[in-house]
Design a protein around this nucleic acid. Sequence first.
DNA 1: ATGTACATACATTCACGTATGTATGTATAG
DNA 2: CTATACATACATACGTGAATGTATGTACAT
Lengths: 211, 211
Amino acid sequence: MARKTKEEANRTRQQIIDAARAVFHRHGVSRSTMEQVAQEAGLTRGAVYWHFKDKTELFFAMREDVFNPLTVRIDAILLAESAVDPLDSIEAALKELFRVLEESPTIRQVLDIMVLRCEYVDEFARVQEEADRPGVEFLAKVEKAYQRAAIQGCLPPGLGLGPAELAHDTWAFATGMLHVLLAGDFERKLRISVDNMITNHMALRREIHRA
Amino acid sequence: MARKTKEEANRTRQQIIDAARAVFHRHGVSRSTMEQVAQEAGLTRGAVYWHFKDKTELFFAMREDVFNPLTVRIDAILLAESAVDPLDSIEAALKELFRVLEESPTIRQVLDIMVLRCEYVDEFARVQEEADRPGVEFLAKVEKAYQRAAIQGCLPPGLGLGPAELAHDTWAFATGMLHVLLAGDFERKLRISVDNMITNHMALRREIHRA
DNA sequence: ATGTACATACATTCACGTATGTATGTATAG
DNA sequence: CTATACATACATACGTGAATGTATGTACAT
């Protein structure tokens, strides 16, 4: 074959990323070969190696292709100052996160790959750090929301925990939910929806449920 | 070399498992080679292949070597009927679980391998199911403990959530804690101990903290 | 005409599985 | 008790496929 226009080349690049996502999800990152990715994209290894130096670089590209838009989306809800009750912001942000996971196969696949189909060693050790960062930043933002809630008197008296402690608990909750969800068969095992679990989690720190 | 007594052979087998744990943890499961495992154990691939059919079988052996004792240990605490307040049993079981993780490098390594250094595809897809099972069983036992707590009146009135919902939340919490912990640098990022996080989590469902 | 965007071809490495060798433990016959 | 026969517990050697990276070919956009 021959040279394409820049636009066509960019589409080819995106095709390779999409193919990588499918192949990584099917066989796991380390067992996936550049040949498989190329075939999935309807190309040859030559094309793949032209666009990406090696598998690691391809992996990073696939990750950023999806992650950045997602964090922006969640932060918009979480940081919305307009909310009357910051607890509602936290609840809405959590629900939006998991709603997106259900609705977008692409995002779900990438998360799936990063959690269950990738080994965080050697070159991929730094992937882990970058994969953690959104979570850690999420924690900080949740804590600020809880702080606003405390100031506005939205937290029940006698709760015993401050914003930091509540945020930590919510963080662990969200992290756990994500992993349990990706492990599969969530609804079958729990017989409860993710949405309800989030409602319940937040209910534990709302005024209305106190005696 | 030549034949050893059965006892010596069993020690060799254990050495291979120990070596596998070290190598898997260093390079990840899929990038680890039987040659590396053999060298780590001071043997050759012949010995490894004699004791284990392939890498998958070795992986399973390594897992069971550690997991079964752990679940027994945790269950003993969780199911102790002697406890006055079942909430204390849950709290103690959680604390024990994470205490063991801190104190036993072996257990921590195996968990680390299973969470961060293994790709759950193809032959390892069933590993995931088996890895999930202890968690699911843990969920069921925690729910029963919450049920006992409800019957004994240990749950605060007006809490709004039943035993099942509380158990789900605790399950997500524990799962999240485990993953956050294994991701590393826990204390640096949170500036709080695991023990305190568990105390706080349980405090959210204790009578004494209500207004 | 030149560099771009690929395809093709090639060399190398590497891990796997297996086949085979071998020395020793162990059981049994006499 | 001891000699022999067989099983065991490895080490060694070999063949094979597969993936990688690179080098080279080629057609087209600019």
